[in-house]
Amino acid sequence: MSPNKLQDPALLQALQQVLFTEQVPHMLNSAQSAALCKQLSCSVLELAERMLPLAASFAVTPKSHFNVGAIAIDTQQQLFLGANYELAYGPLTGSLHGEQSAIFNALSHQASSIESLVINAAPCGYCRQFMNELENAKDLQIRFNQQNYRLPQLLPESFGPGDLGITAPLHHLALSDAHKPSDFAKASYAPYSHTQSAMFAYQGDKLLAWSCYIENVAFSPSLSPLLTLLSQLNLNHLSLDKVERFELWEHNDNRFSFKQELQNFAEYSEKPMTHHGYSKT
């Protein structure tokens, strides 16, 4: 984002002094967020609120033209940016919401428990349901329009993982020992279908971004690995021009596949894709 679009020169200057770059960050670690809060004399929540235009600058919205910026804050006071991403072709369901983008960004970096989400617009019901999958959903703080809410206030009498007998809701992804592509697929959070799927974007042999499947108890808000992958590319300032091929890794016994979804996008973007199956070991 250019300085004249940010309209917050103090924040822009502080970011440059702390990060030593003019590039919009996709996350801030604990030390960086603490340094910025000290320099700007603000709290972490206030910092996140000021950074919402930065988060929204990552939005890709060819259909709605409504840019949502969201920032997830974990218990270590790390900030993870996210934005909505819409596919230019196909039905309206081909879209990733800003809150989902921020949450996956946090999960992919093995963040500690997410304690707050700061958003530049009121979250839709779809996103409120997606947030309800988190392990600490009852204590999750949501801030928008300069007001703080707890998720149960925004989603009363909710339907959650416990209603389908899930005793271990979404907390983190099992990435500590992830080395092979199949390891990232196995890290999928899929307690309802037990589906294991992960997508990767490569430039030559260089991995540019990855994603895995995330389910929701209400099924519909489950997170498409394709949309998450495209969001992760965007958050890392990587255009599709950089991508030379896509890969999809899935367990051979999955109840359904994301192969057609990725193939449709590969044809649209004129990028090659390969599909790999694996068995449990």
Rank of each mutant, 00 (worst) to 15 (best):
Y189F: 15
H65K: 12
L54D: 07
V118W: 01
C124P: 00
V68Y: 07
Q146C: 05
A106V: 05
G94E: 13
S231R: 05
E22N: 13
P25N: 05
Y213W: 15
T93I: 11
N252L: 11
Y189N: 03
P191C: 04
C212S: 11
A111I: 01
M131T: 03
E250H: 07
F246G: 06
E49S: 13
L117N: 06
T93P: 00
L164C: 03
S57F: 07
H251K: 15
A174T: 10
S112R: 10
Q32H: 03
A201S: 09
F66R: 15
V118N: 07
S279I: 01
L164A: 06
T195R: 13
A168Y: 03
H171R: 14
E267H: 10
Y213L: 15
G160P: 00
A10C: 10
R255G: 11
L52F: 05
Q141I: 12
L230N: 02
Q13N: 12
F256P: 02
L170Q: 09
S279W: 04
A106F: 02
G160T: 13
Q129V: 05
A72Q: 05
L45K: 11
E157L: 03
V24K: 10
S116P: 00
Y189C: 02
L107R: 06
A48Q: 01
Q260W: 05
N264H: 10
E22D: 14
F184L: 13
T274E: 14
L28V: 07
Y85F: 15
K242P: 00
P62G: 03
L92W: 10
L40P: 01
S211A: 15
P25K: 03
F58K: 12
A121S: 11
F200W: 06
E267S: 07
E135F: 09
Q13F: 06
H251T: 05
A121Q: 15
S41A: 07
L208H: 12
F246K: 08
F184P: 00
A122Y: 01
S239L: 06
S193L: 14
Y278P: 13
Q146D: 15
S188C: 04
L107P: 09
N84C: 05
A102N: 07
N105W: 02
K186P: 00
V60S: 12
A88N: 09
S116H: 14
R128P: 00
F20N: 15
